[in-house]
């Protein structure tokens, strides 16, 4: 805890992350107004005590929509990072364990291939083929997380494979799979957690981007990206319609990046020793 306060970027990161995660969780049981009910009489109200963030062109409460939108964003990004880790980490471990072999080459060159395409472009292709939905957005973003984790894991694992304790484990008769799980994985977890938070924030951005062009979550599911898109035509009439979802995206991504930076400093024993 003391370490947490020592690190100046960590604290705002933690607070912002808690605020948005909290909003998403609260929205599961309670929101100020039901966002599926349209109330044309109350449309496009500026922020007031009744509607802290104002209302949109259909009279829906923007605070409630942002809370529900947080749920969509976090769910999409979380599952996408999960896909990336579950597929990428084993691939990276396997490539490192069989360094220089055919499987290693295949895994890493496939990674290069995926990296070679702009991720949003492929996401657009996937949604164009399979239809626009939150699920397809998750899959599209998730696929692009795989090479990120595979490369990170492989790189870190390669340096670990030359350690003497790996040699000791081999002398104890352990095979590459077992060594990867018992010795390599625990020692790359730090890196994975840090990269995970960063990919998480990128996932939120990607989901917002896809929804903005109409390829992400479909109505009536609330999404920050689509709120931005819907408010675009009315930005001169009611700037608050774009302001709040925009701020929500900005602050969440900022918070997660700060958290990731802070975690990296916190989990790196070398940096930790230098500080104390």
């Amino acid at each position: 805890m003391k370490l947490l306060l020592h690190n100046r970027s960590m604290l705002p990161g933690v607070i912002l992350t808690i605020v948005f995660a909290g909003a998403a969780i609260v929205s599961l049981v309670w929101v100020p107004y039901d966002i599926t009910i349209l109330n044309i009489a109350d449309r496009m109200k500026t922020p007031s005590l009744i509607h802290p963030f104002g209302t949109d062109q259909f009279g829906r409460d923007i605070l409630s929509m942002i809370m529900v939108g947080a749920r969509t964003s976090i769910a999409v990004a979380l599952v996408a990072v999960g896909i990336g880790m579950l597929a990428g980490v084993p691939l990276g471990l396997a490539a490192a364990a069989r360094r220089g072999s055919l499987p290693d080459e295949i895994i890493m060159r496939t990674n290069d291939l995926v990296f070679a395409f702009p991720s949003l472009l492929i996401a657009v292709m996937i949604t164009a083929v399979f239809g626009a939905s939150a699920l397809n957005a998750i899959i599209a973003i998730g696929i692009f997380n795989i090479p990120v984790f595979a490369r990170l894991t492989r790189g870190a694992a390669l340096t670990l494979w030359s350690r003497e304790y790996i040699m000791a484990a081999r002398v104890a008769g352990k095979g590459p799979a077992r060594i990867s799980v018992e010795h390599i994985l625990p020692n790359v977890t730090n890196l994975l957690i840090v990269q995970g938070t960063i990919q998480f924030s990128l996932g939120i951005l990607a989901e917002a981007g896809l929804s903005y062009v109409g390829l992400g979550a479909q109505p009536p599911t609330a999404s920050w990206g689509r709120m931005l898109a819907d408010s675009q035509t009315m930005i001169s009439l009611a700037p608050h319609l774009a302001l709040f979802p925009g701020l929500a995206i900005l602050l969440t991504v900022l918070g997660l990046n700060l958290l990731g930076d802070g975690l990296r400093d916190l989990l790196d024993p070398k940096l930790r020793r230098a500080r104390t």
Partner: peptide, 23 residues
């Protein structure tokens, strides 16, 4: 091995480290 610092997994306790050859 030579290196007293590199020849142990830093995340394991001594009992688990020294019983590894039981494998």
């Amino acid at each position: 091995f030579q290196d007293p610092y590199g020849s142990f997994n830093p995340r394991w306790r001594v009992d688990r480290l020294i019983t590894e050859p039981f494998h």
